[in-house]
């Protein structure tokens, strides 16, 4: 039986008010890369779940999204499903629900200022091409404490 969990619904709607615009037309689903190739990833169902306060919506499944933004492009109500799903991911991360590799990837960025690790080979290649060397930076670490 479907029940609306008003507590979680309220919390979600505070953070993601644009959810309410969705009229469940399904355009995002048939535009979605993940739904077609990976399967069982319906942005529409996730949005409906969020509207009903269904906590099951917060799962590793959210990371099936290929970030192609086709849903945002086509949504006729301006719900921006990609943005909505990103915000749901934020909520999931706060509840410690996310794929293992995910935390590592974002840690590298905060710690080193770059998305990939830099080693000697990298700078050797750059030098050979006449480019300046690059070093990890601490400039993004202030974000950690935010």
């Amino acid at each position: 039986m479907t029940r609306i969990n008003f507590e979680f619904r309220k919390k979600v709607l505070e953070e993601i008010p644009e959810l309410k615009k969705c009229f469940q037309c399904g355009t995002c689903v048939s535009s979605c890369y993940a739904e077609k190739y990976i399967g069982s990833y319906s942005p529409r169902k996730k949005i409906l779940g969020a509207l009903y306060g269904d906590k099951e919506v917060l799962s590793k499944e959210l990371w099936k999204c290929a970030t192609c933004n086709a849903c945002d492009e086509r949504c006729p109500q301006g719900v921006n499903p990609y943005e909505v799903l990103t915000k749901l991911k934020n909520i999931a991360v706060r509840e410690n629900i996310c794929p293992e590799s995910f935390r590592e990837k974002s840690d590298i960025i905060i710690e080193t200022g770059y998305a990939f690790l830099i080693d000697e080979k990298v700078n050797n290649n750059r030098k050979a091409l006449g480019l300046k060397e690059i070093k990890p930076k601490e400039s993004l670490r202030f974000v950690k404490n935010g």
Binding site: T67, K87, V93, I109
Partner: peptide
């Protein structure tokens, strides 16, 4: 620095 990419965006907008 990194722009930062969607990994950070997914973590905390």
């Amino acid at each position: 620095t990194c722009c930062p990419n969607y990994n950070i965006r997914d973590r905390n907008r």
